[in-house]
């Protein structure tokens, strides 16, 4: 069985689903039997989920206008 330190070493590959079947099985067995590592796995997984689910803020219209002006200036259309 994996130690808790080994589990941390494989955590990224397990979360990213890049671990091979043997490692996957070992990690799964470890987190089934080690409540603390299960919490670390579950909360790290949720960390990634909350970041992936967060839409970026709208860009303020004033900033968009500034960008367009800078682009047009670069083209020599204004300024």
């Amino acid at each position: 069985m994996l130690s808790c330190k080994d589990f941390l070493g494989w955590l990224n590959d397990y979360l990213d689903e890049t671990a091979d079947d043997q490692v996957k099985a070992q990690v799964k067995e470890h987190i089934t039997n080690c409540p603390n590592c299960w919490v670390v796995y579950d909360t790290t997984k949720k960390t990634l989920q909350v970041y992936k689910g967060m839409e970026p803020r709208e860009v303020p219209e004033t900033l968009r206008n500034r960008l367009m002006e800078a682009l047009l200036k670069k083209c020599g259309k204004t300024g």
Partner: peptide, 10 residues
């Protein structure tokens, strides 16, 4: 670095 970043954020 990714592992450390993820664990720190968690």
């Amino acid at each position: 670095r990714l592992l450390r970043a993820r664990l720190q954020l968690r």
